[in-house]
Design a protein around this nucleic acid. Structure first.
Lengths: 217, 217
DNA sequence: AAAGGTTTGTGCACGCGTTCACAAGGCGTA
DNA sequence: TACGCCTTGTGAACGCGTGCACAAACCTTT
């Protein structure tokens, strides 16, 4: 389930607050969901809470971590060391959760050799070697859209079976390869949609300036 | 619908390829969904395709842009100018789609005055003034988790009604305020989950190193 | 004008996820 | 030990999104 990481974060927060046990209702509040949903989800992975008491926080953290595969370290390769690639490489949340950056790759010769987050940027052609060395199974694409499909093909060819795609385009990959997409501008467009709905009925604030030509790319 | 931005991107791509008309099947392929879903979605917003031909690309781009509120410019304020804030400020995809950055705010005195993407970083205390000046309705939170709720409260107090949250935490906001969450490490954890499932039955690659202590924060 | 091919629009049924509601069960207290 | 409180686990119904399948409609060709 996609909610397990949310529960995990809430549980860690609760654990840091000194609680040793937690009810489904408390956990649901911390995760922003329904308590019945929490119980169903936890029962799905054969959980063991005690009726009348709740769940043991530490035990639950371990169980979810194990289910998510976080009891192991995963090697990640980041392709594309632009603004976003820099931010991802320097983002501390990865190492904390057992994701180590095996390499930073790019094709721009001006970026090669640059030290980012303690690693030298290497050329994309070294992808095969990197994957072979460190058993990389997760690739992160932080390139422009037009390069993304080629990078994805290379990742798949090198044996990477999970891809996190930040490029604003559709990737086609063979079966057995998981792709998750994060598109910043789509998130903003969805917010824009809601803003517009809000400005319909109630006399709300208007946007900065109307535009007549609406052909975004 | 949350799929409209995807259709829009596919349509723009198709338009750039020189096509003036498009069938639901072609659009579905470009968006990675089912053709029936495309037709349902488009009919929902009172679309006008012609049977036997398809949809007029330009007209559809305009209709979807209007529905999403992209015929207007929206002012966005970015709070937190760390690695991620830098990347967001420099990300070209925003301006292209009618989102202009009204201000970059932070509380770290060392960052104040720094020029990022053509703008000087201002102090978070100026939020009220910024919102009043430029009618900001969308706020982006790119701060550490512990500061996120406070920033969200300030945004709401200043009149911002849509928030894009990159901080890994749950935000509580009053009704009428939309929050969308983007959590990079959760995406990786979901991929980790799938990787682990893959390594179960088939004798697949193993992760770099097993970890015994699994208490991410 | 008529026929054939193509594509939209949509009624309908299937399936999944969500939620309610309650029985089962543990813990504390007397 | 018995009683009452609290919380889990889950059966069942509800609702929604998805996809199928087909009629309606348009264009092209003859």
């Amino acid at each position: 389930m996609a909610r397990l990481p949310i529960y995990l974060r809430a549980l860690v927060s609760i654990s840091e607050a000194g609680e040793t046990t937690v009810s489904s209702d408390t956990l649901a509040t911390g995760a922003g969901v329904n308590s019945a949903k929490v119980r169903k989800d936890l029962s799905y992975l054969g959980s063991y809470g005690t009726r009348g008491v709740g769940y043991d926080v530490q035990y639950l953290v371990y169980q979810i971590s194990r289910e998510l595969g976080l009891t192991q370290d995963w090697a990640v390769v980041i392709v594309g060391v632009g603004n976003l690639g820099h931010a991802l490489a320097n983002y501390g949340g990865f190492a904390q959760r057992g994701f180590s950056i095996a390499a930073l790759l790019d094709v721009d010769s001006r970026r090669l050799g640059e030290i980012v987050a303690g690693q030298a940027v290497r050329h994309l052609d070294e992808l095969g070697a990197v994957v072979a060395e460190t058993a990389v199974s997760i690739g992160v694409i932080a390139t422009p859209a037009q390069a993304a499909q080629d990078v994805a093909d290379r990742l798949v060819a090198a044996g990477v079976t999970s891809i996190l795609n930040f490029a604003p385009c559709l990737l086609v990959v063979p079966g057995g390869v998981d792709v998750r997409k994060v598109d910043l501008s789509i998130e903003l467009q969805i917010l824009s949609f809601h803003e517009q709905r809000k400005s319909m009925l109630p006399r709300g604030k208007q946007p900065v300036a109307p535009r007549l030509s609406a052909v975004p790319s």
